[in-house]
Amino acid sequence: MQSVLKVKGMLAVTLLPALLLYSFFVIIPIFWSAYYGFFEWSGVGDASFIGWANYLEVIKDPIFWRALKNNMIIVGASVFGQVPIALGLALMLRKSSLFQRFVRSAIFLPMVISTVVVGLIWGYIYHPQFGIINSLLTAVGLESWTRPWLADPSINMYAVAIPIIWNYIGPYLIIFIAALQNIPSELDDAAKIDGADGFKKLIHVTLPMMWKTIMVAVVLCISGSLKAFDQVFVMTGGGPAQSTELLATYMYNNTFMVYRYGYGSAVSTMIIIVSLILIVISQLLMKRRDQEGRGI
């Protein structure tokens, strides 16, 4: 008993510095920011208390809801783009031949490029006059398909989602390959004896064994895409006419372009609330899956 207490005390003491730093730089600022949301403040001069007005304005602002919708497009593109593509690639690239290692590195490469560079590169790829996409389309005679990819509000949200998918496939690929390699080879042999091959084996053996990893990847995907900012900021800046505004660019523009620090703080508090709701939902879905899994 004595020793258990001692260990616990030691744990508490060793965790304390990290906990202090974390609360100081993460937890407390969240509450400060929520508090600043009650003020009208241009950054210079005095702040005036205006109660819930900022929060009400956020909820009433159609641009906030558009930003939320755009963020959901990014979340959707990431969850249904990055995860399946990474999974498919992982299944194809699980062995370690020279060619496969080369392809793996090539897919991981965008991950180590600065996101600003990614945004600039794709800005040029999508360039309405000189961009490679429009040039290729013209070259093969599909001139009617060319369009200003980033300037046309009916498609630009999807256009900006593609670089984000491309950018982040790498880490999920690595996670999935690791998970694949962790599946014991006895299971493979057993499946073979039972006559499960190819697709059947994938559905009944491989995927169930990787399910937890996939779920972790999905949660990472959701939280990552809610923070999406840099590529979109570089490619479109949230424009034109706020058509690619994300929650983060909306917050940034209001705080640092329009100098409404209080309103920006209210927006960031709303972002935290939205993120928490989404994470809780995904956790609940995961738990249900988990229990179903156990039931079988």
């Binding site: 360039h127 309405p128 006059q129 200003p148 990819w149 980033l150 300037a151 046309d152 630009n156 424009g239």
Partner: peptide, 16 residues
């Protein structure tokens, strides 16, 4: 104005 003017930056337009 040229197509997609809202997607290219001022410097690119100057070059154009």
């Amino acid at each position: 104005y040229q197509d997609g003017a809202n997607a290219i930056d001022n410097t690119q337009a100057e070059q154009y």
